[in-house]
Simulated scan of single mutants.
Amino acid sequence: MHYRSKKDLWLGVIIWATILVSLMMPILGREWIAFVIAIPIAGFMMWLWFGTGYLLAEQQIKVKYGPFKKTIKIGDISKINKSKNPLSAPALSINRLEIVYGKFYDFTLISPVNEREFILELLKENPNIQLDEKVKEILGKR
């Protein structure tokens, strides 16, 4: 099942303002070389905005963040925490889930739109995942 990333308004304003400014400034200044350079930058930002999501399939989470990809085996997940960690991550919202996995306690931060459904799907595959109290509250909500 595919889950889109939540999208915070403030981040949308930053991304779309960057796209517009990077394209409009060279046009208004008639700087065509700068415009040609800005096109891939704008395309990359749009790819991040529209191409961030999480696919649960084949006992894995397949994380896509524009051109970047990461695969996490659901069986390797040890814990899920709620997080507002501002680190760069494949998430378009500051309201995130921290997925802890692997022998060395690697983690990734994601922000699926439907957190409750996402977590329940993970628990079906791996009922041994530990949940922090805030995640348990999400599961208690209907």
Score class of each variant (00 low, 15 high):
residue 73 K to C: 02
residue 36 V to W: 04
residue 7 K to Q: 12
residue 30 R to M: 11
residue 18 T to H: 08
residue 8 D to A: 07
residue 33 I to T: 07
residue 42 A to L: 09
residue 26 P to L: 04
residue 76 D to F: 11
residue 12 G to H: 09
residue 88 S to W: 07
residue 46 M to F: 06
residue 119 I to C: 09
residue 134 K to G: 04
residue 76 D to S: 14
residue 47 W to V: 00
residue 13 V to H: 10
residue 35 F to V: 07
residue 132 D to N: 07
residue 68 F to H: 12
residue 139 L to A: 03
residue 3 Y to I: 10
residue 139 L to R: 02
residue 141 K to Y: 15
residue 73 K to N: 13
residue 87 L to M: 06
residue 24 M to E: 07
residue 10 W to M: 10
residue 79 K to I: 01
residue 17 A to E: 03
residue 12 G to W: 01
residue 76 D to K: 10
residue 56 L to W: 02
residue 96 R to A: 08
residue 8 D to G: 03
residue 102 G to P: 10
residue 139 L to V: 01
residue 38 A to N: 05
residue 33 I to M: 14
residue 62 K to A: 03
residue 42 A to N: 08
residue 132 D to L: 05
residue 56 L to T: 06
residue 33 I to F: 10
residue 74 I to E: 00
residue 2 H to M: 09
residue 100 V to D: 06
residue 1 M to N: 11
residue 115 E to I: 01
residue 74 I to K: 02
residue 28 L to D: 05
residue 74 I to V: 15
residue 108 T to V: 12
residue 126 N to K: 01
residue 38 A to P: 00
residue 123 L to I: 08
residue 108 T to C: 08
residue 64 K to T: 12
residue 4 R to T: 11
residue 72 I to S: 12
residue 104 F to Y: 15
residue 58 E to I: 09
residue 64 K to I: 15
residue 49 W to D: 06
residue 7 K to P: 01
residue 142 R to A: 14
residue 100 V to I: 14
residue 35 F to D: 05
residue 23 L to G: 13
residue 130 Q to Y: 01
residue 60 Q to V: 09
residue 134 K to S: 08
residue 125 E to P: 05
residue 38 A to Q: 05
residue 100 V to K: 11
residue 72 I to R: 06
residue 17 A to K: 04
residue 133 E to S: 09
